[in-house]
Design a protein around this nucleic acid. Sequence first.
DNA 1: GTCTATACACCGATAGAC
DNA 2: GTCTATCGGTGTATAGAC
Lengths: 210, 210
Amino acid sequence: MASKSPSSHPTLNEAESATRERILLEAARLFRHHGYAATTLREIADAAHIKAGSIYYHFASKEEILGDVLDKGIQAVSDAVRERIEALPAGASFRDRIAAGIEGHLWGLLHNGDFTSANIRIYGQIPTSAKNRHRVVRRAYADLWDRLFEGAMASGELRSDSSAGVIRLFVLGALNWTVEWYNPQRGSFQDFSRQLTEIVFNGVLARETA
Amino acid sequence: MASKSPSSHPTLNEAESATRERILLEAARLFRHHGYAATTLREIADAAHIKAGSIYYHFASKEEILGDVLDKGIQAVSDAVRERIEALPAGASFRDRIAAGIEGHLWGLLHNGDFTSANIRIYGQIPTSAKNRHRVVRRAYADLWDRLFEGAMASGELRSDSSAGVIRLFVLGALNWTVEWYNPQRGSFQDFSRQLTEIVFNGVLARETA
DNA sequence: GTCTATACACCGATAGAC
DNA sequence: GTCTATCGGTGTATAGAC
Protein backbone atom coordinates (compact mmCIF):
# COMPACT_ATOMS: atom_id res chain seq x y z
CA MET A 1 0.00 0.00 0.00
CA ALA A 2 1.65 3.16 -1.24
CA SER A 3 5.28 3.23 -2.31
CA LYS A 4 7.93 3.94 0.22
CA SER A 5 10.69 6.28 -0.85
CA PRO A 6 9.89 8.14 -4.04
CA SER A 7 13.12 10.14 -3.95
CA SER A 8 15.58 7.38 -4.86
CA HIS A 9 18.47 8.19 -7.10
CA PRO A 10 19.41 6.59 -10.39
CA THR A 11 18.25 3.01 -10.06
CA LEU A 12 14.75 1.73 -10.34
CA ASN A 13 13.40 0.27 -7.14
CA GLU A 14 13.48 0.87 -3.43
CA ALA A 15 16.29 -1.43 -2.39
CA GLU A 16 18.48 1.07 -0.58
CA SER A 17 22.20 0.66 -0.70
CA ALA A 18 23.95 0.10 2.60
CA THR A 19 25.79 3.39 2.24
CA ARG A 20 22.65 5.34 1.56
CA GLU A 21 21.02 3.81 4.60
CA ARG A 22 24.05 4.64 6.76
CA ILE A 23 23.92 8.24 5.61
CA LEU A 24 20.25 8.49 6.58
CA LEU A 25 20.85 6.87 9.97
CA GLU A 26 23.65 9.23 10.89
CA ALA A 27 21.85 12.23 9.46
CA ALA A 28 18.78 11.47 11.58
CA ARG A 29 20.93 11.21 14.69
CA LEU A 30 22.71 14.48 13.97
CA PHE A 31 19.54 16.34 12.96
CA ARG A 32 17.94 15.20 16.21
CA HIS A 33 20.74 16.41 18.44
CA HIS A 34 22.05 19.48 16.63
CA GLY A 35 19.20 20.58 14.41
CA TYR A 36 19.02 20.66 10.62
CA ALA A 37 20.94 23.83 9.86
CA ALA A 38 23.66 23.14 12.42
CA THR A 39 24.38 19.71 10.98
CA THR A 40 26.96 19.84 8.20
CA LEU A 41 27.37 17.42 5.35
CA ARG A 42 30.95 16.95 6.49
CA GLU A 43 29.72 15.71 9.87
CA ILE A 44 27.23 13.34 8.27
CA ALA A 45 29.94 12.06 5.93
CA ASP A 46 32.40 11.54 8.79
CA ALA A 47 29.84 9.59 10.79
CA ALA A 48 29.00 7.45 7.75
CA HIS A 49 32.72 6.88 7.05
CA ILE A 50 32.80 8.52 3.66
CA LYS A 51 33.89 11.91 2.34
CA ALA A 52 31.50 14.82 2.01
CA GLY A 53 31.57 14.88 -1.78
CA SER A 54 30.47 11.25 -1.94
CA ILE A 55 27.12 12.08 -0.42
CA TYR A 56 26.10 13.65 -3.72
CA TYR A 57 26.22 10.32 -5.46
CA HIS A 58 23.36 9.18 -3.17
CA PHE A 59 21.44 12.42 -2.65
CA ALA A 60 20.90 15.49 -4.75
CA SER A 61 21.01 17.90 -1.82
CA LYS A 62 21.01 18.24 1.94
CA GLU A 63 17.29 18.91 1.76
CA GLU A 64 16.68 15.57 0.07
CA ILE A 65 18.36 13.84 3.01
CA LEU A 66 16.09 15.78 5.34
CA GLY A 67 13.00 14.75 3.41
CA ASP A 68 13.90 11.08 3.56
CA VAL A 69 14.65 11.25 7.28
CA LEU A 70 11.30 12.87 8.01
CA ASP A 71 9.39 10.44 5.81
CA LYS A 72 11.01 7.45 7.47
CA GLY A 73 10.01 8.69 10.91
CA ILE A 74 6.34 9.08 10.06
CA GLN A 75 6.36 5.82 8.12
CA ALA A 76 7.71 3.83 11.07
CA VAL A 77 5.06 5.16 13.43
CA SER A 78 2.25 4.87 10.92
CA ASP A 79 3.14 1.27 10.09
CA ALA A 80 3.21 0.25 13.74
CA VAL A 81 -0.17 1.83 14.41
CA ARG A 82 -1.91 0.33 11.39
CA GLU A 83 -0.48 -3.09 12.09
CA ARG A 84 -1.86 -3.18 15.62
CA ILE A 85 -5.26 -1.83 14.69
CA GLU A 86 -5.65 -4.28 11.83
CA ALA A 87 -4.85 -7.13 14.20
CA LEU A 88 -7.98 -6.39 16.25
CA PRO A 89 -11.21 -8.35 15.75
CA ALA A 90 -13.63 -6.83 13.27
CA GLY A 91 -16.10 -5.30 15.70
CA ALA A 92 -13.58 -3.87 18.15
CA SER A 93 -14.72 -0.79 20.08
CA PHE A 94 -13.17 2.58 19.41
CA ARG A 95 -11.72 2.45 22.89
CA ASP A 96 -9.83 -0.73 22.03
CA ARG A 97 -8.75 0.64 18.67
CA ILE A 98 -7.42 3.80 20.26
CA ALA A 99 -5.59 1.76 22.87
CA ALA A 100 -4.00 -0.31 20.11
CA GLY A 101 -3.12 2.89 18.28
CA ILE A 102 -1.46 4.39 21.36
CA GLU A 103 0.68 1.30 21.85
CA GLY A 104 1.63 1.27 18.18
CA HIS A 105 2.41 4.96 18.15
CA LEU A 106 4.63 4.68 21.22
CA TRP A 107 6.35 1.60 19.87
CA GLY A 108 7.14 3.14 16.50
CA LEU A 109 8.13 6.40 18.12
CA LEU A 110 10.46 5.02 20.76
CA HIS A 111 12.04 2.29 18.64
CA ASN A 112 13.05 4.73 15.90
CA GLY A 113 14.04 7.58 18.15
CA ASP A 114 16.46 9.37 15.85
CA PHE A 115 14.02 9.48 12.93
CA THR A 116 10.95 10.31 14.99
CA SER A 117 12.63 12.82 17.28
CA ALA A 118 14.16 14.55 14.30
CA ASN A 119 10.62 14.84 13.02
CA ILE A 120 9.27 16.32 16.22
CA ARG A 121 12.18 18.61 16.98
CA ILE A 122 12.98 20.13 13.64
CA TYR A 123 9.75 20.13 11.63
CA GLY A 124 8.95 23.63 12.84
CA GLN A 125 12.32 24.91 11.68
CA ILE A 126 12.94 23.48 8.24
CA PRO A 127 12.76 25.41 4.95
CA THR A 128 9.25 26.00 3.63
CA SER A 129 9.98 23.92 0.55
CA ALA A 130 10.78 20.87 2.66
CA LYS A 131 7.73 21.46 4.83
CA ASN A 132 5.41 21.60 1.84
CA ARG A 133 6.75 18.37 0.37
CA HIS A 134 6.43 16.59 3.70
CA ARG A 135 3.06 17.93 4.81
CA VAL A 136 0.98 15.40 2.88
CA VAL A 137 2.61 12.47 4.70
CA ARG A 138 1.92 14.00 8.09
CA ARG A 139 -1.63 14.89 7.13
CA ALA A 140 -2.40 11.30 6.15
CA TYR A 141 -1.25 10.07 9.52
CA ALA A 142 -3.22 12.75 11.37
CA ASP A 143 -6.30 11.73 9.38
CA LEU A 144 -6.01 8.21 10.70
CA TRP A 145 -6.24 9.51 14.25
CA ASP A 146 -8.99 11.95 13.43
CA ARG A 147 -11.11 9.08 12.20
CA LEU A 148 -10.48 7.15 15.42
CA PHE A 149 -11.34 10.03 17.72
CA GLU A 150 -14.29 11.21 15.67
CA GLY A 151 -15.65 7.69 15.62
CA ALA A 152 -15.22 7.42 19.37
CA MET A 153 -16.94 10.75 19.82
CA ALA A 154 -19.89 9.63 17.70
CA SER A 155 -20.21 6.33 19.57
CA GLY A 156 -20.24 8.09 22.92
CA GLU A 157 -16.98 6.54 24.12
CA LEU A 158 -15.17 9.91 24.19
CA ARG A 159 -15.89 12.85 26.45
CA SER A 160 -17.96 15.42 24.60
CA ASP A 161 -16.92 18.67 26.26
CA SER A 162 -13.87 18.97 23.98
CA SER A 163 -13.74 18.58 20.21
CA ALA A 164 -12.21 15.49 18.64
CA GLY A 165 -9.63 17.78 17.08
CA VAL A 166 -8.45 19.20 20.39
CA ILE A 167 -8.31 15.72 21.87
CA ARG A 168 -6.21 14.40 18.99
CA LEU A 169 -3.76 17.28 19.19
CA PHE A 170 -3.49 16.95 22.95
CA VAL A 171 -3.04 13.18 23.01
CA LEU A 172 -0.61 12.94 20.11
CA GLY A 173 1.41 15.86 21.46
CA ALA A 174 1.64 14.20 24.85
CA LEU A 175 2.66 10.88 23.33
CA ASN A 176 5.19 12.44 20.96
CA TRP A 177 6.99 14.24 23.74
CA THR A 178 7.75 10.94 25.48
CA VAL A 179 10.57 10.47 23.00
CA GLU A 180 12.30 13.29 24.87
CA TRP A 181 12.14 11.67 28.29
CA TYR A 182 11.35 7.95 27.99
CA ASN A 183 13.94 5.90 29.80
CA PRO A 184 13.89 2.18 28.92
CA GLN A 185 15.93 1.40 32.02
CA ARG A 186 13.05 2.37 34.30
CA GLY A 187 10.80 -0.49 33.24
CA SER A 188 9.52 -2.46 30.29
CA PHE A 189 8.01 -0.84 27.24
CA GLN A 190 4.79 -2.77 27.79
CA ASP A 191 4.45 -1.37 31.28
CA PHE A 192 5.22 2.14 30.11
CA SER A 193 2.67 1.90 27.34
CA ARG A 194 0.00 0.62 29.72
CA GLN A 195 0.64 3.45 32.18
CA LEU A 196 0.34 6.11 29.51
CA THR A 197 -2.80 4.59 28.03
CA GLU A 198 -4.36 4.58 31.48
CA ILE A 199 -3.48 8.24 32.06
CA VAL A 200 -4.76 9.27 28.64
CA PHE A 201 -8.01 7.38 29.13
CA ASN A 202 -8.73 8.17 32.77
CA GLY A 203 -6.47 11.04 33.81
CA VAL A 204 -3.98 11.54 36.62
CA LEU A 205 -6.37 11.88 39.56
CA ALA A 206 -7.11 8.97 41.85
CA ARG A 207 -10.52 7.51 41.04
CA GLU A 208 -13.17 8.44 43.56
CA THR A 209 -15.25 5.31 42.97
CA ALA A 210 -13.03 2.22 43.21
CA MET B 1 13.14 36.34 45.13
CA ALA B 2 16.20 35.72 42.98
CA SER B 3 17.52 38.28 40.51
CA LYS B 4 16.19 38.30 37.00
CA SER B 5 18.76 38.69 34.28
CA PRO B 6 22.33 38.26 35.52
CA SER B 7 23.84 38.70 32.10
CA SER B 8 23.26 42.43 31.68
CA HIS B 9 25.91 44.49 30.00
CA PRO B 10 27.76 47.51 31.31
CA THR B 11 25.26 49.24 33.56
CA LEU B 12 24.24 48.24 37.01
CA ASN B 13 20.63 47.18 37.21
CA GLU B 14 18.06 45.28 35.23
CA ALA B 15 16.35 48.13 33.38
CA GLU B 16 16.72 46.88 29.81
CA SER B 17 17.15 49.35 27.02
CA ALA B 18 14.46 49.40 24.38
CA THR B 19 16.94 48.27 21.74
CA ARG B 20 18.15 45.37 23.82
CA GLU B 21 14.58 44.27 24.37
CA ARG B 22 13.80 44.54 20.66
CA ILE B 23 16.80 42.37 19.86
CA LEU B 24 15.62 39.69 22.29
CA LEU B 25 12.07 39.80 20.94
CA GLU B 26 13.14 39.36 17.33
CA ALA B 27 15.75 36.78 18.24
CA ALA B 28 13.15 34.70 20.08
CA ARG B 29 10.84 34.84 17.08
CA LEU B 30 13.59 33.83 14.68
CA PHE B 31 14.98 31.10 16.94
CA ARG B 32 11.49 29.69 17.25
CA HIS B 33 10.84 29.52 13.54
CA HIS B 34 14.27 28.82 12.05
CA GLY B 35 16.26 27.32 14.90
CA TYR B 36 19.30 28.69 16.69
CA ALA B 37 22.05 27.83 14.23
CA ALA B 38 20.02 28.85 11.18
CA THR B 39 19.30 32.29 12.59
CA THR B 40 22.02 34.79 11.72
CA LEU B 41 22.93 37.91 13.62
CA ARG B 42 22.31 39.84 10.43
CA GLU B 43 18.70 38.62 10.36
CA ILE B 44 18.20 39.55 14.00
CA ALA B 45 19.73 42.96 13.35
CA ASP B 46 17.53 43.56 10.30
CA ALA B 47 14.40 42.67 12.25
CA ALA B 48 15.44 44.96 15.11
CA HIS B 49 16.25 47.77 12.66
CA ILE B 50 19.93 48.05 13.47
CA LYS B 51 23.12 46.81 11.83
CA ALA B 52 24.71 43.50 12.76
CA GLY B 53 27.78 45.06 14.38
CA SER B 54 25.59 47.07 16.76
CA ILE B 55 24.34 43.92 18.45
CA TYR B 56 27.73 43.57 20.12
CA TYR B 57 27.17 46.72 22.10
CA HIS B 58 24.26 44.97 23.84
CA PHE B 59 25.44 41.36 23.89
CA ALA B 60 28.84 39.73 24.07
CA SER B 61 27.92 36.90 21.70
CA LYS B 62 25.14 35.11 19.90
CA GLU B 63 25.10 32.57 22.71
CA GLU B 64 24.38 35.29 25.27
CA ILE B 65 21.29 36.27 23.29
CA LEU B 66 20.22 32.65 23.31
CA GLY B 67 20.69 32.40 27.07
CA ASP B 68 18.56 35.45 27.72
CA VAL B 69 15.81 34.24 25.39
CA LEU B 70 15.66 30.87 27.13
CA ASP B 71 15.71 32.41 30.60
CA LYS B 72 12.90 34.79 29.75
CA GLY B 73 10.72 31.93 28.55
CA ILE B 74 11.06 29.90 31.73
CA GLN B 75 10.72 33.01 33.86
CA ALA B 76 7.43 34.02 32.27
CA VAL B 77 5.90 30.59 32.84
CA SER B 78 7.31 30.20 36.32
CA ASP B 79 6.04 33.62 37.41
CA ALA B 80 2.53 32.92 36.16
CA VAL B 81 2.39 29.57 37.95
CA ARG B 82 3.68 30.86 41.28
CA GLU B 83 1.37 33.83 41.18
CA ARG B 84 -1.73 31.70 40.77
CA ILE B 85 -0.71 29.14 43.38
CA GLU B 86 0.11 31.83 45.93
CA ALA B 87 -3.33 33.37 45.39
CA LEU B 88 -5.01 30.21 46.70
CA PRO B 89 -6.24 29.97 50.30
CA ALA B 90 -3.75 28.49 52.74
CA GLY B 91 -5.21 25.01 53.04
CA ALA B 92 -5.96 24.42 49.38
CA SER B 93 -5.90 20.82 48.21
CA PHE B 94 -3.16 19.57 45.90
CA ARG B 95 -5.81 19.09 43.27
CA ASP B 96 -6.68 22.78 43.39
CA ARG B 97 -3.02 23.80 43.46
CA ILE B 98 -2.26 21.64 40.43
CA ALA B 99 -5.28 23.11 38.63
CA ALA B 100 -4.00 26.61 39.38
CA GLY B 101 -0.54 25.58 38.21
CA ILE B 102 -1.89 24.22 34.93
CA GLU B 103 -3.74 27.44 34.22
CA GLY B 104 -0.66 29.50 35.08
CA HIS B 105 1.60 27.32 32.98
CA LEU B 106 -0.69 27.56 29.97
CA TRP B 107 -1.10 31.29 30.40
CA GLY B 108 2.62 32.00 30.64
CA LEU B 109 3.34 29.58 27.81
CA LEU B 110 0.77 30.84 25.32
CA HIS B 111 1.15 34.54 26.06
CA ASN B 112 4.91 34.49 25.49
CA GLY B 113 4.90 32.10 22.56
CA ASP B 114 8.13 33.14 20.91
CA PHE B 115 10.17 32.85 24.12
CA THR B 116 8.54 29.66 25.34
CA SER B 117 8.39 27.91 22.00
CA ALA B 118 12.04 28.77 21.39
CA ASN B 119 12.69 27.04 24.69
CA ILE B 120 10.78 23.92 23.78
CA ARG B 121 11.94 23.65 20.20
CA ILE B 122 15.62 24.38 20.43
CA TYR B 123 16.74 23.34 23.90
CA GLY B 124 17.67 19.89 22.63
CA GLN B 125 19.85 21.39 19.89
CA ILE B 126 21.87 24.16 21.50
CA PRO B 127 25.60 24.01 22.33
CA THR B 128 26.46 22.12 25.50
CA SER B 129 27.83 25.26 27.11
CA ALA B 130 24.49 27.04 26.73
CA LYS B 131 22.64 23.98 27.99
CA ASN B 132 24.74 23.77 31.11
CA ARG B 133 24.27 27.43 31.97
CA HIS B 134 20.53 27.17 31.47
CA ARG B 135 19.91 23.83 33.15
CA VAL B 136 19.65 25.22 36.69
CA VAL B 137 16.75 27.50 35.74
CA ARG B 138 14.83 24.64 34.20
CA ARG B 139 15.55 22.36 37.12
CA ALA B 140 14.16 24.87 39.61
CA TYR B 141 10.91 25.04 37.67
CA ALA B 142 10.67 21.28 37.38
CA ASP B 143 11.21 21.02 41.15
CA LEU B 144 8.15 23.18 41.73
CA TRP B 145 6.03 20.68 39.84
CA ASP B 146 7.68 17.68 41.43
CA ARG B 147 6.67 19.02 44.85
CA LEU B 148 3.07 19.46 43.68
CA PHE B 149 2.75 15.98 42.20
CA GLU B 150 4.63 14.27 45.02
CA GLY B 151 2.42 16.02 47.56
CA ALA B 152 -0.67 14.96 45.65
CA MET B 153 0.62 11.41 45.50
CA ALA B 154 1.21 11.36 49.25
CA SER B 155 -2.22 12.79 50.01
CA GLY B 156 -3.92 10.16 47.85
CA GLU B 157 -5.26 12.66 45.33
CA LEU B 158 -3.11 11.27 42.51
CA ARG B 159 -3.34 7.87 40.90
CA SER B 160 -0.68 5.58 42.36
CA ASP B 161 0.02 3.17 39.48
CA SER B 162 2.48 5.63 37.91
CA SER B 163 5.31 7.49 39.63
CA ALA B 164 5.01 11.21 40.32
CA GLY B 165 8.00 11.69 38.02
CA VAL B 166 6.33 10.02 35.05
CA ILE B 167 3.16 12.00 35.67
CA ARG B 168 5.05 15.30 35.79
CA LEU B 169 6.91 14.56 32.57
CA PHE B 170 3.74 13.44 30.82
CA VAL B 171 1.59 16.37 31.95
CA LEU B 172 4.17 19.10 31.35
CA GLY B 173 5.08 17.63 27.99
CA ALA B 174 1.43 17.59 26.97
CA LEU B 175 0.89 21.17 28.14
CA ASN B 176 4.08 22.45 26.53
CA TRP B 177 3.15 21.08 23.16
CA THR B 178 -0.03 23.16 23.07
CA VAL B 179 2.14 26.12 22.09
CA GLU B 180 2.53 24.34 18.75
CA TRP B 181 -1.17 24.04 18.02
CA TYR B 182 -3.20 26.36 20.27
CA ASN B 183 -5.44 28.59 18.21
CA PRO B 184 -6.87 31.58 20.12
CA GLN B 185 -9.51 32.05 17.42
CA ARG B 186 -11.21 28.80 18.35
CA GLY B 187 -12.35 29.97 21.78
CA SER B 188 -11.32 31.84 24.90
CA PHE B 189 -8.18 31.04 26.80
CA GLN B 190 -10.22 30.33 29.93
CA ASP B 191 -12.27 27.75 28.10
CA PHE B 192 -9.19 26.13 26.59
CA SER B 193 -7.49 25.97 29.95
CA ARG B 194 -10.55 24.40 31.57
CA GLN B 195 -10.81 21.75 28.85
CA LEU B 196 -7.19 20.75 29.20
CA THR B 197 -7.35 20.63 32.98
CA GLU B 198 -10.36 18.35 32.72
CA ILE B 199 -8.59 16.02 30.30
CA VAL B 200 -5.43 15.92 32.41
CA PHE B 201 -7.43 15.21 35.57
CA ASN B 202 -10.01 12.78 34.22
CA GLY B 203 -8.84 11.61 30.80
CA VAL B 204 -10.42 11.56 27.38
CA LEU B 205 -12.95 8.77 27.87
CA ALA B 206 -16.59 9.49 28.63
CA ARG B 207 -17.32 8.91 32.31
CA GLU B 208 -19.20 5.70 32.95
CA THR B 209 -20.88 6.94 36.11
CA ALA B 210 -22.55 10.29 35.45
C1' DG C 1 31.07 4.60 -6.12
C1' DT C 2 34.44 7.21 -3.75
C1' DC C 3 37.99 10.35 -3.82
C1' DT C 4 40.59 15.29 -3.86
C1' DA C 5 40.32 19.97 -4.76
C1' DT C 6 38.01 23.98 -4.98
C1' DA C 7 34.31 27.72 -6.24
C1' DC C 8 31.45 30.92 -4.19
C1' DA C 9 28.71 32.56 -0.45
C1' DC C 10 27.97 33.68 4.13
C1' DC C 11 28.85 33.24 9.04
C1' DG C 12 30.27 35.35 13.91
C1' DA C 13 33.04 38.59 15.59
C1' DT C 14 36.23 42.75 15.79
C1' DA C 15 38.21 47.49 14.83
C1' DG C 16 37.67 52.02 14.69
C1' DA C 17 35.15 56.29 12.75
C1' DC C 18 31.43 59.15 14.04
C1' DG D 1 25.12 53.81 20.74
C1' DT D 2 25.30 52.88 15.95
C1' DC D 3 27.76 52.74 11.89
C1' DT D 4 31.05 50.71 7.91
C1' DA D 5 34.46 47.60 6.66
C1' DT D 6 36.61 43.47 6.97
C1' DC D 7 39.10 39.20 8.98
C1' DG D 8 39.35 34.25 9.34
C1' DG D 9 36.64 30.25 9.18
C1' DT D 10 33.35 27.22 7.32
C1' DG D 11 29.13 26.02 4.66
C1' DT D 12 26.90 23.53 0.35
C1' DA D 13 27.75 22.08 -3.85
C1' DT D 14 30.46 20.90 -8.11
C1' DA D 15 34.30 19.11 -11.28
C1' DG D 16 36.94 15.68 -12.58
C1' DA D 17 40.55 11.88 -11.46
C1' DC D 18 40.55 7.17 -10.21
